[in-house]
Design a protein around this nucleic acid. Structure first.
Length: 391
DNA sequence: GTTGGCGGAG
């Protein structure tokens, strides 16, 4: 659409492009600007992607493209993310063909005005490794390097000229929001009491008799150190000290079971993971989808979660709601493969389901161990009931 | 009101 607004590859442009091609020296800037520990590989598009912020909510893609036009880059993609409400997020990502073009855009367009707003244009940060959060919104330690080193900001040394004007800092009202509840200053050392070079086993032991230290730490559950051997192999590493966690007086995450990252087991030969289901689909409907294609599941299980609503300020449990995905068991590997072929993209309601080989469930823990684990989620009641119901 | 998505794992 809007061919007329397109950058129009004029002869001039092309020559420019050509020039760039030859001149293009991707190695110009040292790639190693990133923080030392920053393990993450940069995405292929990093450096060519431009973040455009402070957009008016009314700004359309078309307007945005016009705004970008003066910088003349070859835009491969424009993305205007939205928020939950479907409201524009107020920023955009522009993918340019080359870093050169991206840098040019930043130089020429940053701080320009669009729809009466001063737009900020910058090289987009590499996608933040988003920490999976559990239901209560607590960030879960994934063992990823995390943002920390991201501080190696401005990996994009602007081409040249006055580009390095470092106008980045615009006086914000707040200088910096202080970390909500980090360890108190002394806390740094305080933390060390947890740090026991190893996993906190020591701390657990000590606290047992040492008592006094942390009256608050009611329960120190012993870290069932990586019992889930399988997945510990891939991710868990060693436990790391995780601030925030103990700031609350609770067991530091470093001492908790590495259960978080959703440990996944081996690929199953009979189990299927089905996602993107409409929330309205239930077990029966899912089963039927399979049977309609001549595959008879041994079982179909939509994964659900409890829903809650509030009455008089009190939380009450409502019917369980689908989480939008399911596990379906079939007879054998053939059936499994067949199902994937036949049902991939199968339309249910208004969605096309995705289906793939499921990973074998990793057993939570031994004996009643998982009871403990669940308790951490603060959902044990719900789960308990669930079990009752389903028994 | 300033850094997404392509999800999700009982």
């Amino acid at each position: 659409m809007s061919d007329e607004t397109a950058p129009v590859a004029t002869a001039a442009d092309q020559s420019i492009a050509a020039t760039q091609e030859t001149v293009e020296a991707p190695s110009t800037h040292t790639p190693a600007v990133i923080g030392v520990n920053d393990v993450q590989e940069k995405d292929e598009t990093t450096g060519r992607k431009v973040f455009v912020g402070n957009l008016s909510y009314e700004t359309s893609e078309e307007e945005l493209r016009e705004f970008l036009a003066p910088a003349q880059g070859n835009i491969l993609d424009v993305n205007l993310p939205k928020r939950f409400n479907n409201k524009p997020a107020g920023y955009a990502f522009i993918l340019y063909e080359t870093e050169e073009q991206a840098n040019t855009a930043v130089e020429k367009l940053d701080k320009q005005v669009l729809n009466e707003r001063e737009i900020s244009v910058a090289i987009a940060k590499p996608p933040a490794p988003k920490k999976p959060r559990n239901k209560r919104g607590k960030a879960v330690t994934t063992g990823t390097a995390e943002s920390g080193t991201t501080g190696a900001d401005e990996h994009a040394p602007v081409t040249e000229g006055e580009g390095a004007d470092g106008q980045a800092t615009k006086s914000k009202k707040k200088k910096a929001k202080r970390p909500a509840r980090r360890l108190p200053e002394e806390g740094a050392e305080d933390a060390e009491s947890f740090i026991p070079g190893s996993n906190g086993d020591t701390s657990a032991a000590q606290v047992t008799d040492g008592s006094a230290k942390k009256p608050k730490a009611k329960r120190n559950r012993k870290p069932k150190s990586a019992q889930n051997g399988e997945h510990s192999a891939e991710g868990a590493h060693e436990a790391r000290i995780d601030d925030e966690g103990d700031a609350e007086g609770r067991t530091p995450r470093s001492a908790r079971a590495p259960r978080q990252k959703t440990a996944l087991g081996e690929p199953s030969k009979t189990l299927l993971f089905v996602a993107n289901l409409p929330f309205s689909v239930d077990d029966a409907a899912l089963t039927e989808a399979f049977t309609s294609l001549s595959i008879t599941p041994k079982s179909s299980k939509i994964i659900t979660k409890p829903s809650y609503h509030y009455v008089d300020g009190k939380r009450e449990r409502g019917p369980r709601r689908s989480k939008g995905f399911a596990f379906v068991e079939v007879d054998n590997e053939e059936a499994q493969q067949l199902a994937i072929e036949k049902l991939q993209g199968f339309k249910m309601g208004d969605r096309e389901i995705t289906i793939k080989v499921a990973n074998e469930r990793i057993q939570q823990a031994d004996e009643h161990g998982d009871e403990q684990a669940l308790k951490e989620e603060g959902e044990k009641e719900a789960v308990a009931e669930e079990q009752k119901q389903e028994a």
